[in-house]
Design a protein around this nucleic acid. Structure first.
Lengths: 370, 370
DNA sequence: ATTTATAATGAAAACGAATGCAAAATCAGG
DNA sequence: CCTGATTTTGCATTCGTTTTCATTATAAAT
């Protein structure tokens, strides 16, 4: 089932060594080991054994006399010693590294989450390896391998959903995996994200209450991305429940601008004269949407009301402000990372699915109409 | 000179071990080594020695017979082997890790640079450890230590300028350090950024040519940040050269909104009736500026023209668009990272100072006036 | 067939830190 | 000063690789 991908593509990175002879002659360039100071040096300087220094390093103060402790500390400061995490990791089976695979690092949502995640890592003495996949499953796969090679202690991922086998394998090696924004129930991982049900229904109801009769929903392709699916489904369900046809759900490919334009044209002519509104499924879509509307000379909210998910920093500045549903992004990052540490600390409870409530922020783009 | 900071604060992260006895009993929780497959297993499965497998891993194909190569490859795939980078790094003195210390990860400028940097890393088989300092020198210092402990092979930094001693020390250990956006000439590191001279002068001239008589320049505090200083200096110089008083250079603290409001009030009343413009020194300032102007009910460009540095995604959408000077951010990231690899590959030429030209993007916020 | 170059291989010693085990030092109480 | 408990300490091994230094197989040249 799992495609056995040739993971050793990675050695393509190495320049081919030209010939055995040259190799032998040691021509290869490498970082010269500048008399790096090691635990041995510290031990020598402090007049104790490596063991003792090691104990100091890992905080086993209870096993050290005050005198020794002081001397080691002094030696370390004097020599400017930095313990080698590679060695520590190799022996101790902990790299103090957490991987974070992000679908699109330039998306403000991602960076906000990242920021929260990073703060927690720092607090715990861990560091973050950040990987950007551009939503490309192949890149994602390569990154999973790389991170595995670095023996990360945990992974926070915004997955494309195309590499479940590899993720499962990672988890089998006792590496906690936490999903952000996008669920994959079959994997049984902790998942953190927005309560899409609540958020969507709140937004839809608000818009209808403002008096709009037709609502379009514009989203990136639903295929495989749970958050997109959940929002779209909730949108359709709410409308249907209220007896309104949910025909205007448009999937657009943001890479081809015409795609969006076409859908817009269709909706706008179809609803000519009606009180109508458009919902953008996330911040990126919203940006494109507004750009497209401006290009067509369509007035917001005069000709059409607009609202969307995510609350980008610029939402208040467009016209009289765009109505949005904000996500607690920083909190999502924090919570996700905390799940990882909980797992590392031995929590074996069943996978948790934590969703945060979205917060409706009403602005000028959705005025009440009669 | 260098303050000897107690680097071993870091072991504060470790839970104190309760007592020697308990410790002896091995109560400590640790990740159980699940029969991880090692190079030895691969060697065994392929019927060769570890040495040979290692050669395969590092791409020394010239030293391998086809038969051996095939067998090793098969063994690796079958066993699902992932080479341990910690061990490789320990022995080979290369971690395949590059550190990136960013002042503010939520700033789109930073993420755009990050994206470029990351792409290069990936291409080279390296990974990126990302650290966010929030412009806090203490955090920066801690991160430098941490990264050093992880034996990063290179560092890309957007420095606060308060930890030069430690950066120099890092560089002494033969770790290439490349500065982004902010120069520190005394350190002698490669530096990549915008050509602030050219960019600023181009912008200022454009605005003057459009017919504006008074220009305000709003920037975050200049203290120690070269890019801010360069832009502000260029602004003042250009005006002075043209015989215009450069009085309206305002440093504002973005954390206190009143700070900006005050300066704005001052400038706007002072120039009542004049043709006037305001330049924001970067994207973040611009956002605050526009927000403040909207709050005061000041029309752009009716009451005041606006332009700024960075070209945030939303710049085209505000009113009839905001005029900006765009930086080639992705390119900056790529170039910076390439400098690191050049250094790693042995380039010992003097420090380079690469600045890219900014590109003036004219939009509706700065119309010609008579 | 014998020498001589060259291509393929392997045994064993690092790399820097953590740790099981055992020994040395210290202490409390007599 | 001695005994037994307890606290401190260190030796030697281990983690998974890379690399040095040989050694063995193969081919080319005589």
């Amino acid at each position: 089932m799992i495609k056995r991908y040739d993971i050793f593509e990675w050695n393509r990175f190495l320049k081919p060594v030209p010939s055995m002879n040259e190799y032998r002659k040691g021509i290869m360039m490498r970082k010269k080991q500048t008399e790096k100071v090691t635990i041995t040096d510290v031990a020598k300087a402090a007049g104790v054994s490596k063991t003792t220094v090691s104990r100091y390093l890992s905080g086993q103060y209870h096993a050290l006399s005050d005198r020794t402790r002081t001397r080691i500390k002094a030696a370390i400061e004097q020599l400017n010693y930095r313990p080698n995490q590679l060695a520590r990791g190799l022996k101790g089976d902990r790299s103090y590294l957490i991987g974070m695979i992000v679908a699109d690092i330039t998306n403000p949502y991602s960076t906000a989450v990242l920021r929260g995640a990073e703060d927690v890592c720092k607090r715990k003495g861990y560091s973050l390896m950040v990987c950007n996949t551009d939503n490309d499953p192949a890149k994602e796969r390569e990154y999973i391998f790389t991170l595995q090679s670095h023996r990360i202690d945990g992974l926070l991922i915004n997955t494309t959903g195309q590499n479940n086998g590899f993720l499962r394998e990672l988890a089998n090696d006792r590496t906690p995996v936490v999903l952000v924004d996008r669920k994959m129930p079959e994997l049984g991982f902790d998942t953190i994200g927005l309560d899409n049900e609540q958020a969507t229904s709140e937004l839809v109801h608000f818009i209808l209450n403002q008096g709009y009769k037709r609502i379009a929903y514009i989203t990136e392709p639903l295929a495989g991305v749970s958050s997109r699916q959940e929002r779209a489904a909730a949108f359709a369900r709410e409308l249907t429940r209220l007896g309104i046809p949910a025909d205007d759900l448009y999937e657009v490919d943001l890479h081809s601008p015409e795609s969006l334009m076409e859908k817009l044209d269709h909706f706008l002519t179809d609803t000519e004269g009606d009180k109508r509104a458009i919902i953008a499924a996330n911040g990126v879509v919203m940006l494109k949407l507004i750009s497209a509307l401006q290009l067509k000379g369509v007035q917001i909210p005069g000709d059409v009301a607009v609202a969307g998910f995510d609350d980008p920093e610029w939402a208040p500045l467009i016209g009289s402000g765009i109505t949005t549903v904000a996500q607690p992004t920083y909190q999502i990052g924090v919570t996700a990372m905390e799940r990882i540490f909980n797992r590392l600390e031995g929590d074996t409870s069943p996978a948790q699915n934590i969703h945060f409530a979205g917060k409706l922020i009403v602005r000028g783009s959705t005025p009440a109409v009669d």
